[in-house]
Amino acid sequence: MNYDEAKAKLIEVIRNRLVDAGKDIPPLEDDTVLLDGSLSLDSLEIAVVVITMGEITHSDPFASGFIGFQTIGELARLYAN
C-alpha cells in the first residue's frame, strides 16, 4: 500500500468514526492534527482508529511499541510501504 492509499483508508476510517459518533466532519488533510480538539475524537477513539487501520491493512507499525505521530499524514505514513 502506498502513502496515498494509506491516507485514503485512514481518512475513511476517521470519517466513519465521526459519522458513528454523530460529530461534524471537518476537512481531513495531511496536516490535520488528530488530537488537538479539531476532530472531536478523544484518545480512545484514536486508539480505535489505529486498531481498525491494523485490521484493514493487515500491518502493525506499532508491533514493537509506541511510535510518535500527530497528524493524519504522519499516521498514514506508518502504514505506507
Partner: peptide
C-alpha cells in the same frame, strides 16, 4: 502511560 502517549500525540 496512556496519558503520556496521548499527550505526545496531542502536543508533539
Amino acid at each position: 502511560p496512556t496519558f503520556w502517549r496521548s499527550f505526545l500525540v496531542a502536543a508533539g
